[in-house]
């Protein structure tokens, strides 16, 4: 995963121009959703599709309802979120530390940079078979995979953000007699924090994709497993319901991280 990709995930297609009227803001997307569901319904009806190929919207809704009331479903959500959370925290922390070191010490940067660049081309997905060989379906393997996916996004963006801090700030700090570390932590890291936070949010999206992928190829529980089990028993309605859940959790995680970084960085 590259930092550009992280940028893409952080980007939205939301129009920048604010809607003039709340009816437009809520009404038009609603029309879009209704049109989508109508097209879906009509496609199924016209082609007389089997529910294995394409279930009707109501069936998916019912499957979603069944999932929500069943206990196993929540276990799967918890498993996926645990894998995500543990790996993400490690990845962000390690990534920011290495990124800051790379920005601070040019020797360190010159030494580590080629290794980081080379490893970045081994995308997290390519690690999945090896991780399964090494760690089986354990939590540790998934944690490491998620940490790996997060780490490279964070290293690159943290180093970049630190180096793009307004040089005046550094000069002012130096003039005020700040030590090198005080300057790095109290001035540069703070100034770089908003950029780092926004790439942390993008990294969360990548990490969430990695979690589901890892579960898909080898796991004993989690949302990826939920989808595989549903698809092997040909319950396409449950598959789509699972996809909806994956999307919702992914969006939720990203919103929570956005909210956390906003409230933590209230000074900016």
């Amino acid at each position: 995963m590259t930092s550009k990709e992280a940028e893409a995930l952080g980007k939205t297609t939301r129009p920048r121009t604010g809607s003039r009227h709340p009816l437009q803001r809520i009404g038009l997307p609603l029309v879009g959703v209704v049109l989508l569901i109508a097209t879906w319904e009509v496609t199924v009806w016209l082609n007389d599709l089997d529910s294995i190929v394409m279930p009707r919207p109501m069936e998916v809704l019912r499957a979603l309802g069944d999932l929500v009331v069943s206990g196993e479903f929540w276990d799967d959500v918890v498993v996926s979120l645990t894998e995500f959370g543990s790996g993400y925290v490690i990845g962000v922390f390690a990534g920011v530390v290495v990124g800051v070191l790379m920005a601070e010490f040019s020797v360190f940067r010159a030494t580590v940079h080629p290794v980081v660049e080379a490893l970045r081309f081994i995308v997290p997905f390519a690690w999945i078979p090896l991780v399964i060989l090494w760690f089986g379906t354990s939590l540790l393997g998934k944690t490491l995979l998620v940490a790996y996916a997060t780490f490279f996004v964070m290293v690159v963006s943290a180093a970049k953000a630190m180096q793009q801090v307004d040089p005046t700030l550094t000069k002012v700090g130096r003039m005020l007699g700040m030590s090198r570390w005080r300057l790095a932590f109290a001035v540069q890291l703070r100034a770089a924090a908003p950029t780092i936070a926004s790439s942390a949010r993008a990294a969360a999206a990548i990490a969430w994709i990695a979690v589901v992928a890892a579960e898909y190829v080898g796991a004993s529980a989690g949302l990826g497993v939920l989808i595989i089990n549903a698809s092997t028993s040909l319950q396409t309605d449950v598959v789509i319901a699972g996809m909806v859940v994956i999307g919702l959790v992914g969006a939720g995680v990203s919103a929570v991280i956005g909210w956390l970084s906003r409230s933590y960085l209230s000074y900016v």
Partner: peptide, 16 residues
């Protein structure tokens, strides 16, 4: 305005 929110909603669903 009608369809971009739908695309936005599909994006967090990983391709897997």
């Amino acid at each position: 305005r009608m369809f971009l929110p739908i695309i936005e909603a599909i994006r967090p669903v990983s391709s897997i």
